[in-house]
Simulated assay, not measured.
Amino acid sequence: MRETDDRCRLVLILPPTEDIEKQAQQLEEALGAGDVATVILPQYGRDDQQFQIAAEHIVPIAQAHGAAALIAGDSRTAGRSKADGLHFEGSIEDLRDTLAKHTPKMIVGAGGASERHKALEIGEAQPDYIFFGKIEGDIKPEPHPKNLALAEWWASMVEIPCIVMGGNEVASVVAAAETGAEFVALRLAVFEHPEGPAAAIATANALLDEKAPRFNA
């Protein structure tokens, strides 16, 4: 077992960009700098063809570094790009249908857990993980207090792993890890870091090594 398997790990969310070549290079730098469990690629405003091109750039890079590559929303793009899975946000009924179609062949995780009742409904569908926060929710340095509270509540009572959205500063991983969440997601904290993505990932992992609770302690 890797040391990182016993504490909160990083999830990277790709920000919107028109320069996918540059983003692919940034991702390569980030993943080469330390442990990352998962990379999530959202569609944002891209049309289907642009999204497919982006996925075909990003998925192999993530997988080459041992990170799971997830596509947010589009199962066709996920299949064509040979991604590891889907990040789903939608109705409970559509989530159940997506899980029935794609698991266990693909990872299917679920967002949209805005409060406890909705989180429990999502949990009953048995996704591979639940995501607390919004993909574009890193608008402040720290994670949103509501997401931290939900993650702490969830991690204390449910076995399905959770991801909590971090803030736009790397140090936000500490507050996220202290909830007991298995994963913390970063976006702008990595891709807009003043010293570059590699420095952000190295710093985030160092903070988690030092301060994150150990699950088996």
Score class of each variant (00 low, 15 high):
residue 102 H to T: 01
residue 83 A to L: 11
residue 46 R to S: 10
residue 65 H to W: 05
residue 190 V to W: 08
residue 119 A to G: 14
residue 117 H to C: 09
residue 23 Q to Y: 08
residue 186 L to N: 10
residue 161 P to D: 00
residue 113 A to N: 13
residue 117 H to L: 14
residue 22 K to R: 15
residue 161 P to C: 01
residue 91 S to W: 02
residue 87 H to P: 12
residue 55 A to F: 04
residue 15 P to W: 03
residue 174 V to Y: 00
residue 29 E to R: 03
residue 151 A to G: 04
residue 144 H to T: 04
residue 210 E to W: 00
residue 90 G to Q: 11
residue 150 L to K: 03
residue 127 P to F: 13
residue 146 K to I: 14
residue 16 P to W: 00
residue 48 D to I: 12
residue 153 W to S: 04
residue 159 E to V: 06
residue 111 G to W: 09
residue 8 C to E: 08
residue 69 A to D: 02
residue 130 I to M: 08
residue 115 E to A: 12
residue 179 T to Y: 10
residue 113 A to W: 05
residue 34 G to A: 04
residue 92 I to G: 01
residue 25 Q to N: 12
residue 183 F to S: 01
residue 217 A to Q: 09
residue 49 Q to N: 12
residue 76 R to S: 10
residue 9 R to P: 04
residue 155 A to L: 03
residue 76 R to T: 14
residue 78 A to Y: 01
residue 170 V to I: 14
residue 127 P to K: 13
residue 127 P to V: 14
residue 210 E to P: 00
residue 10 L to Y: 00
residue 119 A to K: 07
residue 45 G to R: 13
residue 149 A to P: 01
residue 97 D to R: 15
residue 132 F to H: 02
residue 17 T to D: 15
residue 124 E to W: 08
residue 132 F to D: 07
residue 215 F to N: 02
residue 102 H to S: 12
residue 51 F to W: 11
residue 93 E to W: 06
residue 97 D to M: 15
residue 178 E to Q: 15
residue 70 L to M: 05
residue 7 R to L: 09
residue 197 P to K: 09
residue 30 A to R: 13
residue 195 E to C: 11
residue 155 A to P: 02
residue 46 R to E: 09
residue 187 R to V: 05
residue 103 T to M: 10
residue 186 L to Q: 10
residue 92 I to K: 12
residue 38 T to N: 11
residue 25 Q to D: 15
residue 177 A to L: 11
residue 36 V to E: 10
residue 191 F to V: 03
residue 24 A to Q: 07
residue 44 Y to E: 07
residue 149 A to R: 13
residue 114 S to G: 09
residue 21 E to W: 00
residue 46 R to C: 06
residue 109 G to Y: 07
residue 4 T to H: 09
residue 118 K to Q: 13
residue 209 D to L: 03
residue 123 G to I: 13
residue 209 D to S: 00
residue 20 I to W: 07
residue 179 T to M: 11
residue 93 E to G: 09
residue 78 A to V: 02
residue 54 A to I: 02
residue 42 P to E: 05
residue 38 T to P: 12
residue 74 D to K: 12
residue 127 P to A: 12
residue 180 G to L: 05
residue 140 K to Y: 13
residue 137 G to M: 05
residue 119 A to T: 11
residue 141 P to V: 04
residue 150 L to T: 07
residue 52 Q to R: 15
residue 25 Q to P: 03
residue 23 Q to W: 08
residue 206 A to H: 14
residue 2 R to F: 03
residue 83 A to F: 05
residue 135 I to A: 08
residue 157 M to Y: 05
residue 48 D to M: 13
residue 217 A to H: 08
residue 48 D to W: 12
residue 34 G to R: 03
residue 165 M to G: 08
residue 68 A to H: 06
residue 143 P to C: 13
residue 129 Y to W: 15
residue 215 F to I: 02
